[in-house]
């Protein structure tokens, strides 16, 4: 069994703060969701995860994007870059970077659920047979700090503020039960200390389609992890759904295996 080798101290530098664990779930209505899985090159396997999480073979990235119509934070869009991993025996992802389109959504995602979100311009557009996603830093210097230090790697997006661009073609309908969602482990400063916060979303899709995706630009550094190189797109799906983000129930010490370092919050 292999474990992450990233320095917890270095990962902690940009981690959000959860001042108090909430008890209420957050419900997102009228969500257009995009989910993409891409394989990563081997150097990213252990190096991007804290010791409390375990990589999979081959290393893979899970990109999640939402265009939300209704929420306690108003309408917003968001994108999450996550590394597929295991926490104990459980399938999870480690969120290395996140972006949201409004101040309220950034604040809510960071303070309630520990997503390392920063504000960015996000466009998730659905056409008849195509879906486009673009995420751009809003400041003018092209060095967004979404998820950490400024970009130093990636392709195409460097230097112009473009963090991510992808297009997906030829939607193929699936049953709503065919889509597998995997929860996030978000590193955050919590009342219990620096912890991996387990966020499991519940999805109620009304429509699911699978598409063939192409990643046109990905600035890994802008997402906080220069080692990420999503070179092989595996799958892409688009769904119309409602999403519930339940209150946090479990947190884990990022330096310990889940069997030893898990604490129940409520």
């Amino acid at each position: 069994m292999i474990s992450g080798t990233a320095s917890v101290d270095e990962l902690a530098a940009g981690a959000p703060e959860i001042a108090a664990f909430g008890t209420e779930s957050v419900r997102l209505g009228g969500v257009t969701g995009l989910s993409l899985v891409a394989e990563l090159r081997r150097p990213a396997r252990e190096a991007v995860l804290p010791p409390g999480l375990h990589p999979i073979v081959p290393p893979a990235m899970s990109l999640l994007a939402w265009d939300v119509s209704e929420s306690p934070w108003g309408a917003f869009s968001a994108a999450f870059v996550r590394v597929v991993c295991r926490s104990g025996a459980r399938a999870r992802t480690f969120c290395v970077g996140a972006a949201a389109s409004t101040h309220d959504a950034v604040a809510g995602l960071r303070s309630q659920f520990g997503f390392p979100a920063h504000q960015a311009e996000i466009s998730l557009r659905r056409h008849y047979d195509e879906v486009d996603l673009r995420v751009s830093a809003e400041d003018d210097d092209g060095r967004s700090h979404v998820g950490g230090e400024g970009g130093s790697a990636g392709r195409n997006g460097r230097g112009n503020g473009l963090m991510l661009a992808l297009s997906a073609l030829d939607p193929d309908p699936l049953s709503v039960g065919d889509l597998q969602h995997v929860g996030s482990m978000n590193l955050a400063h919590t009342p219990l200390g620096l912890r991996l916060v387990q966020v499991e979303t519940h999805h109620e899709p009304s429509r699911v389609e699978r598409l063939a995706a192409r990643i046109d630009a990905f600035d890994a550094g802008a997402w906080g992890q220069p080692l990420l190189d999503p070179y092989w797109a595996v799958s892409c799906s688009v769904s119309l759904e409602d999403v519930e983000i339940p209150a946090i129930r479990f947190v884990c010490d990022p330096a310990l295996p889940a069997a030893e370092g898990t604490e129940r919050v409520q």
């Binding site: 926490s87 104990g88 025996a89 459980r90 999870r92 929860g183 387990q198 499991e200 129930r249 479990f250 884990c252 889940a258 069997a259 030893e260 370092g261 898990t262 129940r264």
Partner: peptide, 8 residues
């Protein structure tokens, strides 16, 4: 609980 990561 199936979501408890400490449960082997």
């Amino acid at each position: 609980p199936v979501d408890d990561p400490s449960v082997a």
